[in-house]
């Protein structure tokens, strides 16, 4: 360390010592408990319908099959379900949609998918969720705490099908300058954020239509530094989607010991098979592990499914851990997890 380094460290330390932080323990604990309570209530209310939503969306995933997205492909229509099951504050019918979020893998950030129930237009609700807002304009986080939306905090999004066969997604809320440039975001995350919006919109529309991104309802040359002069299509899966991504179960699912736990998702099958384990949240070793059945062939992502008989599994919280094949033996396969609670 140079003398300049030492001097700077001393100066910073002196500045820091001059700060006298206030006490917020009670305040932050109260808020944390309140949020935790709301999450639990949502979880309890969601149990029944999440199962229905998840299984139909899994069928959608299986039906979709191939991972190549270079040309528009048909996708299943969104499923209407009672919204009150997943959000006690919601009124009117809700729709299950797939929202793409970022999370980390050993190879860097990739996109993962989460099923959400949104009010109103599924297309509008889905892109709004991908941008991190709920229908009332409040900040909305992915349910899975491993996932994140990296859009600037004030971003709003709306979408519609335009007459020329293009999905139009308009962003706003955040200062225009911040949304045009990627600011602090690494280039890869900025690209994935735009990709997440495109894929979310296409899935919600049920068609792989080109997506035109607008800024404050006007055409723009770039969003987060990504060129948007022309409508965008989804990029090839490799390098964008994680090697494994769970569709079922939903995060925080409560499942009865007498029921079977069905785990579904998309995974890379080249060089092996996806394995799925149930790991107690208080431990590191799976109490049960299975190899997933999946369609074979190709280098893309394939739907997989594995079913667990929970008889004999002790009640408690578990992480459902899906692990992609690791043909190179790097010891760092991609994983996706969901936390569930087994009850008797």
């Amino acid at each position: 360390m140079t003398s300049d380094d030492t001097r700077m460290a001393r100066l910073f330390s002196q500045v820091a010592q001059g700060v006298d932080p206030g006490d917020r323990l009670e305040e932050l604990l109260a808020e944390a408990r309140d949020r935790s309570g709301r999450s639990s209530r949502r979880r309890l209310a969601a149990v029944g319908v999440v199962l229905v939503v998840a299984s139909v969306l899994a069928a959608f995933a299986v039906a979709r099959g191939d991972s190549t997205r270079t040309s528009p492909q048909p996708a299943a229509p969104a499923l209407p379900v009672p919204s009150t099951a997943s959000d006690p504050d919601a009124t009117g019918p809700g729709t299950a949609v797939t929202v793409y979020y970022l999370s980390d893998t050993p190879d860097g950030p990739r996109l993962f998918r989460e099923v959400r129930v949104v009010d109103g237009s599924p297309l509008d609700g889905a892109v709004r969720a991908a941008a991190g807002r709920d229908e009332r304009g409040r900040k909305q986080y992915p349910v899975d705490t491993d996932y994140r939306s990296v859009w600037p905090p004030l971003t709003t999004a709306s979408a519609r099908l335009a007459a020329d066969g293009v999905i139009e997604v308009s962003l706003g809320g955040d200062p225009q300058r911040d949304l045009r440039s990627r600011g602090y975001l690494p280039a890869q995350e900025a690209g994935l954020a735009v990709e997440a919006l495109v894929r979310t919109a296409q899935d919600a529309a049920g068609q792989r239509l080109p997506v035109r991104l607008l800024l404050f309802d006007r055409p723009t040359d770039q969003i987060l530094g990504v060129s948007t002069a022309e409508p965008l299509d989804a990029a090839p899966d490799r390098g964008v989607l994680a090697d494994v991504s769970l569709t079922d179960p939903a995060e925080n699912l409560l499942v009865d010991q007498d029921e079977a736990l069905v785990v579904r998702g998309l995974g890379r099958t080249a060089g092996g098979a996806v394995t799925v384990g149930l790991v107690p949240v208080t431990g590191d070793e799976p109490v049960v592990e299975r190899t997933a059945r999946s369609e074979e062939g190709g280098d893309g992502l394939r739907p997989f499914v594995v079913t667990f008989d929970l008889t004999g599994i002790a009640p408690g919280d578990y992480d459902v851990v899906a692990r992609a094949p690791d043909p190179s033996g790097s010891g760092l396969p991609h994983t996706d997890t969901r936390t569930i609670t087994v009850v008797d």
Partner: peptide
């Protein structure tokens, strides 16, 4: 920092 502690509270079961 308060937000960071609240987020930590939420995911404590995974950090431990």
């Amino acid at each position: 920092v308060q937000d960071a502690f609240i987020a930590l509270h939420r995911r404590w079961s995974r950090l431990r």
